[in-house]
Nucleic acid binder design. Structure first.
Lengths: 210, 210
DNA sequence: TAAAATATGTGATTTAAATCACAAAAAAAA
DNA sequence: TTTTTTTTGTGATTTAAATCACATATTTTA
């Protein structure tokens, strides 16, 4: 745990803070598709992502989903922070897109560290800012882009986060994330393939152009 | 200034913090439609809204707009906070929807107060959380609601923020905020009027049902 | 008061996306 | 190997929203 923490956080956190995190943090491995946070959960702490990729989705009353953004290593979940601090419920679902490793930080420390460590304050504020910007990008996509553009952005964004040039996914899964229908996705994917931007396989999409 | 600050913030901030704000804060009155923050601005501080209502919009490369949310008294602008702290550019435009009063807080104090005042930490984190939730609501609207539902939500939300039951606005202005066309808005408004939810006048919409 | 600008109303048409319906290929299970 | 399930492909139709085109109020200003 200390090893990975130092690998990704040594230039973010002071040594003393890393020491504290090692003491109170709880290491956890998530298998692919494991749910880390569900709708309505009350968080007793916040996760620090050491390795892997986490998908954050929003769900409405009818059970329909829309992807908000992905987390990658070095990130934390701003919604969890909110929930932990205010004792409120979490409005999102977080699912591991691949095997991931996290450190769970108990909520009692969150405010204490704000006073003690400049690097922690910076990290928390930066996390919120990054998340606000991601949300704005999501809003931009929904408001200003057509399905084909959104789809291409989805594919390239996800490939980046997953650190792969091919995605192992089905048309139906993409449709769920983008809150549309499988038929629409299949047609647009075929179109992107004809434009030479991607190559389609069963359960797999190769991205040829970024 | 002290008077209004105490009126809305005495139960939010400690007395010592209010004293400091009075010392370093710069009071400013905004007239209707005045631009407080524009795209690409670098913020030298953050505004604290004492009175009035501020509209926050996002703009894409083609100059097309979409409303993100409104601020009301007691609120601050999380994007400005981000911009002030990181010295980065602001990705939004903030416009006074009616005459408003703000206090401008210099960025040098923002981090200092995080260490000194528990109430400031709570205020900052709460502000971010409220904004994240607003953004999620905006995403919900875009992803899950049809135009008619979005329009009705827009009208009732805005009326609430403006503390009025009628809105002085044109169909075109609504269309800009919702990133659609005037014709679409005019038709849907007429439909809402037929359902008895609103009453239409020139330059004015009465909301009959909340 | 006449002309111009602004705001709203409404039919007709187009378009992107959603939906329906079904076929076929590939993989998994029996 | 046969059957079943999962995944993908594609024509046809429907629908919400966008766009075009123009009429008619209402207000402003020349």
């Amino acid at each position: 745990m200390r090893e990975k923490l130092e690998k990704y956080f040594s230039y973010v956190f002071e040594k003393e803070l890393i020491d504290e995190i090692v003491q109170v943090g709880v290491y956890k491995k998530l298998r692919e598709n494991e749910i880390l946070v569900d709708l309505g959960d009350k968080m007793k702490g916040i996760p620090l992502l050491l390795e892997g990729a986490i998908k954050i989705v929003r769900e409405d009353k009818n059970g329909e989903e829309i992807l908000l953004y992905f987390l990658e290593r070095g990130d934390t979940c701003a919604s969890s922070f909110a929930s932990a601090i205010t004792n409120g419920k979490c409005g999102i679902r977080a699912t591991a897109e691949k095997e991931s490793e996290i450190i769970f930080l108990p909520k009692e420390k969150l405010d204490e560290w704000m006073v003690k460590y400049k690097s922690w304050r910076t990290f928390v504020i930066d996390s919120y800012n990054i998340r606000l910007n991601e949300m704005m990008e999501t809003i931009d996509s929904l408001a200003f882009m057509n399905m084909s553009e959104r789809l291409y952005k989805y594919l390239t964004d996800k490939a980046q986060i997953m650190r792969e040039t091919s995605l192992n996914t089905t048309h139906q899964d993409i449709a769920y994330d983008m809150h549309t229908s499988r038929v629409v996705i299949s047609r647009l994917l075929k179109q992107l393939e004809n434009e030479g931007k991607i190559k389609l396989h069963r359960n797999k999409i190769e991205i040829l152009e970024f």
